[in-house]
Amino acid sequence: MTFFKDYANEIIISSVIVVVVGVLRLISNKLVRRFAKTSHKIEYRTNLVTKYIHILINILAIIALIIIWGVQQKDIIWAISSMATVVGVAMFAQWSILSNITAGVILFFSFPFKIGDSIKIHDKDFPIIGEIVDIAAFHIVLKTIEGEEVVYPNNLLFQKGISILPTHHEEKEFTD
């Protein structure tokens, strides 16, 4: 019983943080889904972006809880710098993975093409014309006129010029 008396403030503030994290997760989820609905983004990509935002919120909450429970700032800085060093060394060889994830999030929020659009990637050595079949966290999948599927990394979409080609759909009557 003395634990609750000794740490009453920390327990109350920690409870508030847990509630705030829940509320922030709900709000961010609703905002991303509203943005996706108004911009006609697909569910899979919406879930990816939501997951990234939730991870960021959770990391910030963990840092706040560590500070509230009295861990010294120098210990926190030492632990974070050690983790950052390990992650930095590990990610140095894998920087393209991180850049592809970042590019995937940017594509979700800002780029004007979507699944079904035909695009031309202006690559000097290997130009590609195809229809976007899928947009994932790390890459897009294009289907060329020849029927070949090309997997193209998201980060290269920011390095190359891209033209969105006009699509000519035949007028068809759809039936169930």
Rank of each mutant, 00 (worst) to 15 (best):
I42F: 14
K5D: 03
I59L: 09
N47I: 11
K5L: 00
K124N: 04
I57Q: 04
I145H: 14
D176C: 06
I67T: 12
L65E: 03
I97Q: 12
I119M: 05
V32Y: 10
N100S: 07
Q94A: 06
L56N: 13
K30N: 06
D123M: 01
N58S: 07
I77R: 04
I76C: 12
F35G: 07
H169T: 14
R25N: 11
I129P: 02
T85M: 12
L24Q: 02
D123K: 04
I13C: 05
W95V: 13
A36F: 05
E43S: 12
E170D: 12
V86K: 05
T50F: 01
I67K: 13
M1Q: 09
I13A: 12
I63K: 13
L107V: 07
I67H: 11
I119H: 02
G104W: 02
I59C: 05
I145Y: 13
M1V: 09
K51A: 15
K37D: 08
A64P: 09
N47P: 02
A93F: 15
T38W: 11
I128F: 03
L107T: 07
T144A: 01
K160N: 15
E171M: 14
A64G: 11
L48T: 12
V49W: 00
V23N: 05
H54I: 00
I132S: 00
Y52A: 04
H169N: 15
G130D: 08
G22N: 10
I129E: 14
F138G: 00
L165A: 02
W69N: 12
K120W: 10
I62N: 01
I66C: 07
G147F: 00
P166W: 07
V21S: 12
L24C: 07
K160A: 08
Q72A: 15
S14N: 01
T46P: 01
Q94T: 03
F108A: 08
V21D: 06
Y7V: 00
T175E: 14
E131V: 13
A103M: 00
E173I: 14
P112R: 13
L56S: 15
